[in-house]
């Protein structure tokens, strides 16, 4: 049952991508920027959980909560300090600032923890369950379940609550939302907080799946998750989830059937294909320029 095992492995990595992709898609939808530093937030999440469990030695649940809260705070602070002053600037300025923030976090953690990988604490027993003959690790299963729960809760929040409605309004038309009395600053902060919080969960899943973490882990993970968000259609949360899962499976298949050397190339190839064929992504809407 090699095939099924690969699918499920792919889905579980895909789940992690999906959680990160949701962060990208939410921020892009509302702030209209690629938050290049989002990958680093995930790295910070993984390190926070590592520090709390292995060094401060608090219970696992506490370190998870600290990681989520820490990342949410970090997301909000980066937005306030680095992105907010550039809210009305061109996308180039924001892009470069975001890359600056990403370098900043990466190098800060390099100085704090060194470039050598740290062993991520064991959050749950290693072992596998058999499902239709495929062997799935507990971590993979947890990753998938968490992805679905988080996406479901987020969709409920966005579609059913007042704050969620405010978020949709701001992403539709910031100026009009402001005129309707919506506090745009709070809404943007909230978006960064939720996106970064989900990033922390993704970081912890990363740590559990690969059991080694280093300060560079966010860079490629971030780019792949962004590709997942584009694939799904930027701005769409369901899209980000589906995109993440597809990227995960595509990657798992490339590694097991072609070569691990080309897994990155295949992911980038998917991005190129989707942008050329359907730039709005699977769930996105086409925009028409007004003349």
């Amino acid at each position: 049952m090699e095939f099924l095992t690969q699918i499920i492995n792919g889905l579980s990595t895909g789940g992690m991508y999906a959680l990160v992709a949701i962060g990208y898609t939410m921020v892009y939808g509302i702030a209209k920027m690629i938050n290049f530093a989002h990958g680093e937030i995930i790295m910070v999440g993984a390190y926070l959980a590592y520090v709390m469990t292995s060094i401060v030695k608090v219970p696992i649940i506490v370190s998870v909560l600290v990681a989520i809260a820490g990342c949410a705070l970090l997301g909000v602070v980066t937005e306030k300090v680095a992105y907010k002053p550039l809210r009305n600037s061109g996308s180039l300025a924001v892009l470069i600032t975001a890359i600056g923030v990403s370098y900043l976090l990466q190098n800060l953690f390099l100085i704090l923890f060194g470039s050598a990988a740290r062993t991520f604490p064991q959050f749950m027993p290693s072992g596998t369950v058999s499902l239709f003959g495929a062997h799935i690790t507990y971590v993979a299963l947890l990753s998938l379940v968490l992805t679905f729960i988080c996406t479901g809760l987020l969709l409920l929040f966005i579609n059913k609550t007042k704050l969620g409605k405010a978020m949709r309004a701001v992403s539709e038309d910031r100026g009009a939302a402001e005129l309707m009395g919506i506090n745009v600053n709070t809404t943007i902060s909230l978006t960064f907080a939720i996106g970064s919080g989900l990033g922390a969960i993704a970081g912890i899943i990363y740590g559990m799946s690969y059991s080694l973490i280093n300060p560079y882990l966010g860079a490629m993970l971030g780019i792949k998750a962004f590709i997942a968000a584009v694939l799904g259609g930027i701005g769409s949360i369901q899209g980000a989830m589906v995109g993440g899962l597809i990227i995960g499976v595509a990657e798992a298949f490339t590694i097991s059937y072609i070569s691990s050397a080309f897994s990155d190339a295949v992911v980038f190839g998917i991005l190129i294909f989707i942008l050329l064929v359907k730039p709005a992504g699977l769930f996105g809407q086409n925009m028409r320029e007004k003349v």
Binding site: F226, I227, G269
Partner: peptide, 19 residues
């Protein structure tokens, strides 16, 4: 493509060339 999309697709080509 324009703006961010062009940026990310050229990044993708960059990485593919590297691979």
């Amino acid at each position: 493509l324009k703006g961010d999309y062009l940026c990310i697709i050229t990044l993708a080509f960059n990485e593919i060339i590297r691979v």
